[in-house]
Design a protein around this nucleic acid. Structure first.
Lengths: 343, 343
DNA sequence: TTGAAAGCGATACCAA
DNA sequence: TTGGTATCGCTTTCAA
């Protein structure tokens, strides 16, 4: 098919040089005379030659690819994550392979398989078991994103507990809401686990009894709608719904508005992430901004460093700061800076 | 690092056989005596040998990977798409590489690059220019998903125009709504283009003057919120908002509810896709169900066939049927079968 | 500066 | 049935 028949040997023959010279020219390595370089480039240009990826990778002992393992593909969080990761990987001429473990029973096996096709791996916390994570780390450089790495596996994550505690404190004290619920499943994700911990800590600090357990649903908008259905009954409605991310918060918001409730008058709703839509809805969503893009970019940088300079073993945990964003859904007045259309 | 040092040669030496025999055993090809097989398997097991992917791919002249090119990662549509694609690819031992062209100026170049790393390619309509599509098709088997392929490039898509015309007719005649707008950008996507065409056709058939142009926004929920802001002003509010997909419809719904409008009494809203959340919101969303998963699975099957049996060149366009799903957001009564919580 | 040749890891043909 | 070996496409010493 097409020009795929072309090999270094062909080009070398056509240009009247050796394969070594062609290789040197097409890689920009080594010293080549101007005359040779011209001849080779001409032949390459004329026939549209592009070195075969497999041959190159085999000889170089490198795949030229980085892997990214994460739970699902829905939502702006993952879009940001991927873009941040690619923004670092692509300039280094590494393509990004994505493994989506959501609804997949054999994710550990899939990850091990992927590790054999890439030079390094970023794994979102909570997607892969610790033993497998350690095995992966023996095969290629691994960085855990949004979670803690086991053993010496480095990690990059956002600050969760303190900012969630701050938000919760704001609701408990500034808005005098003492009947809060938490929507999200701490089991599946280190991020959510830390946010739940912050939620509890703020209650303790304020001397308010927190709910015994979270409303453990998944992280998509539909789950928020379902949670709303379950929570927002006229007889036993909480004063505030603190959600583990913006998507579920949006779902709860839709559920609340759909049953004719007023937000924040009848019920307060908050999210986490500060997704683009959070500032657009009405009422605009109070949330916590986390630097998702930067998180992923940092992970990619760590991996690339480990790949390119194996002697410099990266280690330690990087924690990026987050920021509380107060908007109308928690009862605060409209804020022209952070967004929200007002009424 | 780890066991990656192991090669066929090593295992052959350890098992006291030739590399050919090891290869035969690890691939299950050719005839091997029970005794040899046992010896080899033992050595493989003991040392945890897994054949190197690059070596294998180079020798086989095959990457063992399929590519999937599409615009963005947000939303349930793409989740379904990927899962459907993988459901066919993975059993055939092909991994799936994803290229997300959203916010990427060099998507054509990226796609060409990807074509050199995979055995076949599925391209979502509207993401890659036609000339590039033809070049890709010269390199590997290509299938266009949700769009028409140029030249002899085969395609798989869902029926759009007729079902959208049916929905529009339902709004125009059954609900007597003569003031409809269409939200979605026909330029970027063949799907949307066909849906807009169906919207117009129904107007013509009913003798109603359609709007001069669509509200050309992108396909994410935030875009729907923005469209709502622009459309749902008290002075000039349309009777119905027909959206190109469920996500924008949800955005419009959030926007409408957020401004205190009642749906469907004050304004009717419809979507397209029948995403899981469409049945959950209140009012439940009237929409058109399309078999996204099946679409992607069919595309993967076509590609795999083309890869495995190059003599059988696939061609033609496959069009999968869609189905109108009437729920409350268009003014129809609650339907216990198709979903919707009622009031 | 250039080229010949030895790998990289696995497959598959052809003899034995 | 088994093993030796050429081959896949490219990179990279090592000599010239």
């Amino acid at each position: 098919m097409g020009n795929s028949r072309l090999t270094v040997r062909e080009i070398a023959r056509l240009a009247g040089v050796s394969v070594a010279t062609v290789s040197r020219v097409s890689n920009g390595t080594g010293q080549v005379s101007e005359e040779m370089r011209r001849r080779v480039l001409e032949a390459i240009e004329k026939h549209g030659y592009r070195p075969d990826h497999l041959g190159r990778a085999l000889a170089a002992g490198r795949h030229g690819a980085l892997g990214l393992v994460f739970p699902g593909l829905s939502g702006p969080y993952f879009t940001e994550l991927i873009q941040g990761f690619e923004s670092e990987a692509v300039p280094s001429r590494a393509s990004v392979h994505i493994l989506c473990t959501h609804l997949r029973s054999d994710s550990d096996a899939q990850a091990l398989e992927m590790a054999r096709r890439v030079d390094g791996l970023a794994v979102i916390g909570g997607t892969i078991s610790e033993p497998t994570l350690l095995r992966l780390a023996e095969m290629v450089p691994v960085v855990v994103v949004a979670g803690e790495g086991p053993g010496a596996v480095p990690s990059v994550r956002a600050e969760n507990a303190a900012s969630m505690a701050e938000l919760t404190r704001h609701l408990l004290l500034d808005h005098q809401l003492t009947d809060l619920v938490f929507v999200g499943n701490p089991e599946g994700s280190p991020d959510v686990s830390e946010r739940w911990a912050g939620f509890l800590a703020a209650h303790r600090a304020a001397g308010v009894t927190p709910p015994a357990s979270p409303v453990a649903v998944s992280m998509q908008q539909a789950d928020g709608v379902l949670a709303a259905e379950q929570l927002l009954r006229p007889d036993s409605r909480p004063a505030g719904v603190v959600c583990a991310n913006d998507e579920t918060a949006l779902g709860v918001l839709v559920g609340a508005l759909g049953r004719g409730l007023r937000v924040p008058q009848d019920v307060v709703i908050t999210g986490f992430d500060d997704a683009p839509i959070a500032a657009l809805v009405n009422p605009a969503l109070t949330t916590i901004r986390q630097p998702v893009r930067e998180l992923a970019a940092e992970a990619a940088r760590l991996i690339l460093t480990a790949v390119n300079e194996p002697e410099r073993v990266p280690c330690g945990d990087i924690v990026l700061p987050t920021e509380l964003v107060l908007r109308r859904s928690c009862g605060c007045p409209a804020n022209p800076v952070t967004g929200g259309t007002g009424t």
